[in-house]
Simulated scan of single mutants.
Amino acid sequence: MGSCVNDVTEYIDQLIDNSDTRDKFRRRLQLPFIPPEEPYSFFKHYETNWVVFFEAPRNLLLNKNSEGWLNCHILTPLIDDCFLTCEEVQVHRGEEMSFASIERKNLSREESERKQYGHKIDILFRIDDTEYFGSETYVDEDSQNSKPISYKQKLLREMKDQLDRLLKRLHFTRETARDIKNIIIHGINQGGLNGKIYAMYYDVDLQYYFAYETCRYRIGTTWGSIPDSLATLKDILCLKRDITNVIDTVKRTKRISLRTNSKDLFTINNLPATTSSPQKYTQKG
């Protein structure tokens, strides 16, 4: 995920540069981002809602907060505010069951067997019934604990399900098949106040899929760490750009397939199976 530079990120950089003292930061915030003579536009102005945790008598960010609190007060506002202009994206949150994992877990189900449930994810992005993004939050930040590993594996497994399902639903031509590597699923693991953003895609020959960490971020808890939080905002804006690029690629693939003779179209079948979860290592005494 490369750096994202536009008017908004340049404004964020100005805030970072003026975060030495509270007075400088307040004065910079009070200067309008958009010239006051310019007519109001939702797509440029949004709704201003500044977090007051840092100046409250009791800074809630310093508490040992639950997973639900972190989702409600940190991750959800960050995601919602950045993606407000993506009108096609439907944001589902609060342990929503993934359609992609439901489909994968029931591929071999006999008609007489009971349908299996899918994985529940903290935040999902859907367009219609296709998923492009997932986010998992956990509280335990202890590096000696296996929980962060299992949460990472859960997220990557979910991303694999989403990627397989998305590719299987598309009809490709020789031209659009070259864009398969540009159809990327993204995800966030948020552990306490630390987060990691991941991406996953297949190579052009669909022989291997690749998952990689695009960046790490941290939500600041003190006045001195405000630049960390502002840098996190820039990372989420880069994520937004990358997700919208994927959506544009999928739209283009569908559009070209509609005007192509059906005999010149092909689909993706027999994608590699979801990798098994790593076994927990037990040290023998």
Rank of each mutant, 00 (worst) to 15 (best):
L78P: 00
K254L: 11
R93W: 08
K240A: 01
T214S: 14
Y201W: 13
L107K: 15
T274Y: 00
P227Y: 08
L237D: 00
P36F: 04
V204P: 01
I184A: 03
K44W: 06
F54G: 06
L62G: 03
I180K: 09
T221H: 09
T244W: 01
E213Q: 15
R252F: 12
V246N: 03
S101D: 06
V8E: 09
S225R: 12
M200F: 00
F266R: 09
E38T: 13
V250P: 09
K24A: 13
Y202W: 07
K181C: 08
Q90F: 04
D248M: 08
Q190C: 11
Y198C: 03
S19L: 09
T173G: 03
S146A: 10
N270F: 11
K284V: 14
V89C: 04
V204M: 05
S19H: 06
D129E: 07
S229A: 10
M97G: 06
L237I: 01
E136Q: 09
N49F: 09
Y132A: 06
Y201G: 02
R255T: 12
L107G: 07
R165L: 07
C82Q: 06
L31N: 07
H186P: 02
F53N: 13
H45L: 02
F53I: 02
L124V: 13
K24N: 13
Y11E: 05
T9S: 07
R27E: 11
P57D: 11
R28Y: 01
K234Q: 14
W50D: 09
E96A: 15
F172L: 11
K115E: 12
I149A: 06
C215F: 04
L167F: 02
S225L: 08
E67R: 10
N63D: 15
P35Y: 04
K196Y: 01
I74N: 02
A273F: 04
L156G: 00
C215N: 07
L237F: 01
I226V: 14
K240E: 03
K147G: 05
S19T: 05
Q30M: 15
Q190R: 04
I256R: 04
R241D: 08
I79T: 02
I268S: 04
N106W: 04
C86F: 02
E158P: 00
Q279F: 10
P32K: 12
K280E: 12
E141K: 03
E96I: 12
K24P: 00
F25L: 15
S19R: 08
I256C: 05
Q153C: 06
K196C: 05
L155D: 02
N245A: 15
I247D: 02
C215V: 13
Y198T: 01
H171Y: 14
S146W: 14
I127T: 05
K284F: 10
R241T: 02
Q190A: 10
R218S: 13
R26C: 12
H171T: 06
L166I: 11
R241V: 00
E87A: 13
R178V: 09
L29H: 10
T244S: 13
V139F: 03
K64H: 13
L70T: 15
Y212W: 10
D203Y: 05
Q153Y: 05
C72H: 07
A211Q: 09
G220Q: 08
W223M: 11
E10A: 07
M1P: 03
N65D: 04
V8I: 12
I185L: 09
R104H: 08
F53V: 05
T274V: 14
R26T: 12
K280I: 15
D80Y: 12
T76E: 00
H73M: 09
R27K: 15
S3D: 07
L29W: 11
E141P: 00
T9K: 01
K168Y: 05
